[in-house]
Simulated scan of single mutants.
Amino acid sequence: MSTSLFGPRGSEHEIETGTTLAPKFDEHGLIPAIATDVKTGDVLMFAWMNAEALERTITTGEAWYWSRSRKAFWRKGETSGQTQTVKEIRIDCDQDAILLKVEVGGDGGACHVGYRSCFYRSIPVGASGQVELRFEDEELGEHKHG
C-alpha cells in the first residue's frame, strides 16, 4: 500500500486548521491510536498504527494495528472474534494521534486478558506508599484477578 491517502505535512497552521490528512508518525513510523465504543464512549484500548495500518483502517472500515513486538499487522478480532468495525475516525489538532469510534463484535471485549476495556484498573488519586490498583471493569473472558 502507498500513502496516497495522506498529504504532505505543511505549516503548523495548515496542519491544525486545514483539511488535508497529514499524519505525523514518530521516528519508528508509528502513530498512537485510541479505540472507543461508538455507543458508550468508553475507552477500549490503545495501540499503534503505521501508515499502512491507518490506510487499511480507512479503506476497509475495520480496525488494523501494528504490533511492535511481533513486527506485524493485525486486524482486531482476526483470532479472538472481538472485531472493531470503525464508525468514525478522528485525528487530533497536530495530527499525531488517532481516535477510532468503533462497534465491537464478538463478546464485546477489547482486551486480550478478558476485559471489555484494556483500562480495567484504576490508580487511586492521593495515595501514598505502595499503590494498590483497583479493578473497575467487568471481565468478559476466563481470566480472573486476585
Rank of each mutant, 00 (worst) to 15 (best):
E103P: 10
L99W: 06
M45I: 14
A63E: 05
S128V: 12
H112I: 05
Y65H: 06
V104I: 10
D94F: 02
Q130L: 12
Q95F: 13
W74T: 05
E55W: 13
D94I: 10
T79L: 07
V113N: 15
W64D: 00
A63I: 10
V102F: 07
Y65K: 01
M45G: 08
E88A: 15
K87E: 14
T83H: 14
I98W: 02
E62N: 07
E62G: 02
I58H: 05
Y120T: 09
I91C: 02
D96W: 04
G109S: 13
K76G: 02
D92N: 14
S117I: 08
W64E: 00
E55I: 15
I123M: 09
G109R: 05
M45A: 11
Y65P: 01
D107Q: 13
Y115E: 11
A72S: 15
G109Q: 02
A97P: 01
T57S: 13
V125R: 13
Q84N: 08
V131S: 09
G114K: 06
E62K: 10
D92T: 06
I89E: 08
Q82Y: 08
G129F: 01
K87N: 13
R116T: 14
I89R: 05
T60N: 06
W48P: 00
T85Q: 10
R121C: 14
L99T: 02
F119W: 09
S67K: 09
F46E: 02
R90N: 08
F46M: 13
K76L: 01
F119M: 06
W48H: 02
Q82T: 12
R70E: 04
I91W: 01
G106V: 11
M49H: 04
D96Q: 03
F119E: 01
R90Q: 11
S128N: 14
A110M: 05
H112W: 07
A97M: 03
Y120V: 08
R75Y: 02
W64G: 04
Q130G: 02
I58R: 00
R75G: 04
G126E: 06
S69G: 14
V113A: 10
E52Q: 14
Q84S: 06
G108T: 00
F46K: 03
T85M: 08
D94K: 07
T83R: 14
I98T: 06
E88F: 08
E62I: 00
G108Q: 04
K71T: 07
A72F: 07
E55R: 15
F73K: 03
L99K: 10
P124Y: 11
E55A: 15
S80H: 06
S122I: 12
F119T: 10
R68C: 07
Q130K: 15
R75L: 09
S67W: 11
G81Q: 03
I58V: 06
K101F: 05
L99M: 12
G77W: 00
E55K: 15
Q95K: 09
T83V: 12
C93F: 03
E52I: 12
Y65A: 09
R116N: 04
T59N: 09
V102K: 02
T85C: 00
G81T: 04
L54Y: 06
T59C: 05
I91R: 00
C93M: 07
G126M: 10
K101A: 04
R121F: 07
W48E: 03
I91Y: 03
I123P: 01
S69D: 14
G108L: 01
